[in-house]
Simulated scan of single mutants.
Amino acid sequence: MSFTFEDLRAAVAAGVLTEAQAASVTALANDRAGKRAAMPAEDEPFEFFRGFSEIFVSIGLVILLSGIATMLAWFGGIALMSVLPLICAGICWWWAGYFTLKRRMNLPSMVLATAFGGGIYLSAITILGQAGLSLRVVVVVSFVLAALGMGLWYRRFRLPFSAFILGLFALGAIYTLTASVDSLGGFVEGSRGGMGGFFDLRESPQFATATLLFGVAVFLVAMWFDTRDPHRLGRHAATAFWLHMLAAPALVNTVALTLYNSGGAGGIGLLVVALVIITLLALVIDRRSFLTAAIAYIALVIAWVVGDSGDFGTWTFILIALGGLITAIGTWWVPLRAGVMRVLPDFPGKSRLPPYGSTE
């Protein structure tokens, strides 16, 4: 019977091995095989569920929570409506002790975490809304309370996905604090800039700057988790994955939209430089999420180069060029990363990034 990398990850998840022990075993196996620096082609593990049973249980949990909420509302009446979501959040915490800690089921745990955070937020916004506070204060405090609740959830259940929900609530609080009425009105009405103006550092400086700082902060936290698990065997790497999913759009959208909206060849040239830097950063940290967030802007650059006339032929060429470029980078990601890492001089933390090597 062969022993696989998936067995190591399962052992770490079950608490049989620590992440450091699993990394040492992996290093020893790679050394004996003569490929210490080599990594599998698919070296960014991502898992929503382990089988259809998790999907089935998740559907059941959603229906069951809906039924319990309906029953409580029916018997409790109006007086219970404010705290009803909070009661459901408490039920989710109780059930997570079984589905997350004991059964270690991924998708049901994600469903329970989402319902827990949503329950805290809905109860908070309902209760605070009756306190005579301004709408902005009510929404911000509700987001903060929900984020704190998700922090407790992560501390108790160590579920990587809960860090993503926590980040969303934090981002919601930041957006509510910094979004002006004018920028919101322009976004809703589709005025000049639209979403671009919303994230443009010149047109919405407070909102866009807050988004940029949020992206930087979350990126640094994600890298802290990444460097604690360079072989990506356990929850630290999984937590980093979800944090990068938050950081990448916040950083890329703000920088790319600001440069693109500046217009002209100069703005496009700076955007190209930014996209190259983003691509190199994605290769260095071995996270494809940053490049995924930049795909739309790569398409905009191609459209500008070929002259976006909006006809069928132009968009066909854009799709072929964009698809070919992304496919090529994804196909040869490992050797491309190996080449970049070998060219780069030593820098602090380089040895704590995922090992690199060409599989060609």
Rank of each mutant, 00 (worst) to 15 (best):
S58M: 02
S58I: 02
S58C: 04
I59H: 13
I59N: 13
G60N: 07
G60T: 15
G60W: 13
L61N: 12
L61E: 14
L61F: 14
L61M: 15
V62K: 06
I63Y: 13
I63D: 05
I63G: 00
I63W: 09
L64M: 13
L65Y: 09
S66Y: 09
S66I: 12
S66R: 08
S66A: 15
G67M: 09
G67L: 13
I68V: 15
I68W: 10
I68M: 06
A69G: 15
T70F: 10
M71W: 15
M71D: 04
M71P: 06
M71R: 13
M71T: 14
L72E: 03
L72W: 02
L72D: 05
A73F: 03
W74Q: 05
W74P: 03
F75N: 07
G76P: 12
G77I: 13
G77Y: 14
G77F: 11
I78L: 12
I78Y: 11
A79Y: 07
A79D: 11
A79M: 07
A79T: 14
L80R: 00
L80F: 14
L80Y: 02
M81V: 11
S82I: 02
V83S: 11
V83Y: 08
L84F: 08
P85G: 09
P85W: 11
P85T: 09
A89Q: 04
A89E: 01
A89P: 02
G90T: 02
I91Q: 05
I91M: 01
I91G: 05
C92Q: 03
W93Q: 04
W93L: 13
W93R: 10
W94A: 14
W94I: 15
W94D: 08
A96I: 04
A96H: 08
A96F: 01
G97D: 04
G97Q: 09
G97P: 08
Y98A: 08
Y98L: 02
Y98E: 10
Y98I: 10
F99H: 09
T100V: 15
T100A: 14
T100H: 14
L101W: 04
L101I: 12
R103K: 12
R103P: 00
R104N: 13
R104I: 06
R104L: 01
R104G: 00
M105D: 10
N106T: 13
N106R: 15
L107N: 05
P108D: 03
P108F: 06
S109E: 10
V111T: 06
V111L: 02
L112I: 07
L112V: 01
L112K: 03
A113G: 13
A113V: 04
A113W: 03
T114P: 05
F116V: 05
F116R: 04
F116L: 07
G117Q: 03
G118Y: 09
G118A: 07
G119I: 06
G119C: 03
G119H: 01
I120R: 00
I120N: 08
Y121C: 07
Y121S: 06
Y121K: 00
L122Q: 12
S123V: 01
A124Q: 01
I125F: 01
I125G: 00
I125N: 05
I125V: 15
T126E: 03
T126Y: 07
I127D: 01
I127N: 02
L128N: 09
G129L: 11
Q130W: 05
Q130D: 11
Q130S: 14
A131W: 11
A131R: 10
A131V: 04
A131Y: 04
A131N: 10
G132L: 08
